[in-house]
């Protein structure tokens, strides 16, 4: 097949959008499981929900640093985040887990293997996220690609409540172009690499939907304390 030649393959110049995205990456968050609580499924889920809540605060601040995101209306910013928040969390866990064998690195102090996931009732989700990790590991996903793909996942969240569709399309185009430009400069040996990365997004959406369903049922159960932002976003997906 003929190769598509990206318009802006700026020979070896670093892509400005990718550079900004690298600079916007939130700092690591520690899980800090409560040492006073005995090990149990409730403790594991409480730790994860607390970690997710703190990461969400950072992810909202991160979104503001995506070039062009803050130019969208507040309503459209909210709609994108309400649709994509779990995809962003899952993609971050998947990227962090790339160096781990069959374990998920939720945080440096909270790494979960299949046995621990089973005890927490999270085996299905653990398996699904590991499928994503394997996909990225096969491609040797780079940090630059990860940050760009994460921004694309947000801009491409398919919310049904977008008011200015053209503006959101403009953001998608700018981020897509940044990915094409990066791949053109750094992976000219594989002209389909950008497409391969984009083609991982359906699995990310599927895994994220699984996670939302699971945490919604935990919420219904009422045994795990959840912070307000996490609850607010879970409710946005019901």
């Amino acid at each position: 097949l003929p190769h598509r030649k990206p318009v802006s393959c700026s020979a070896h110049a670093e892509n400005k959008v990718v550079t900004l995205l690298l600079g916007a990456e939130p700092e690591k968050v520690c899980a800090m499981p409560d040492p006073a609580l005995p090990d149990s499924d409730i403790k594991a889920l409480t730790t994860l929900c607390d970690l997710a809540d703190r990461e969400l605060v950072l992810n909202i601040s991160w979104a503001k640093h995506i070039p062009g995101f803050s130019s969208l209306s507040l309503s459209d910013q909210m709609s994108l985040l309400q649709s994509a928040w779990m995809e962003i969390l899952v993609l971050r866990v998947a990227f962090r887990s790339l160096p781990c064998d069959d374990r998920l690195l939720f945080a440096d102090d909270y790494i979960m293997d299949a046995e621990q996931a089973k005890c927490a009732g999270l085996l299905e989700l653990h398996t699904a996220i590991l499928q994503l990790v394997r996909r990225y590991r096969c491609m040797s996903l780079e940090r630059e690609e990860f940050v760009t793909l994460k921004a694309i996942a947000l801009a491409n969240s398919d919310s049904m409540h977008i008011e200015d569709v053209e503006a959101v399309q403009g953001l998608q185009d700018a981020l897509h172009e940044a990915l094409l430009d990066y791949e053109c400069v750094h992976h000219s040996e594989d002209p389909r690499r950008a497409g391969k990365l984009i083609m991982t997004l359906p699995l990310l959406r599927q895994t994220s939907a699984k996670a939302v369903r699971h945490f919604c049922s935990i919420k219904q159960d009422g045994r795990v304390p959840m912070h307000k932002l996490f609850l607010e976003l879970l409710e946005a997906n019901i």
């Binding site: 601040s61 640093h65 803050s70 909210m78 309400q82 403009g170 700018a174 307000k228 976003l233």
Partner: peptide, 20 residues
């Protein structure tokens, strides 16, 4: 959207927006 007060507040408060 009325219900999503925390998200709304965090979006309004976060600093350093970047324009294209």
């Amino acid at each position: 959207k009325e219900k999503h007060k925390i998200l709304h507040r965090l979006l309004q408060n976060s600093s350093s927006p970047v324009d294209l």
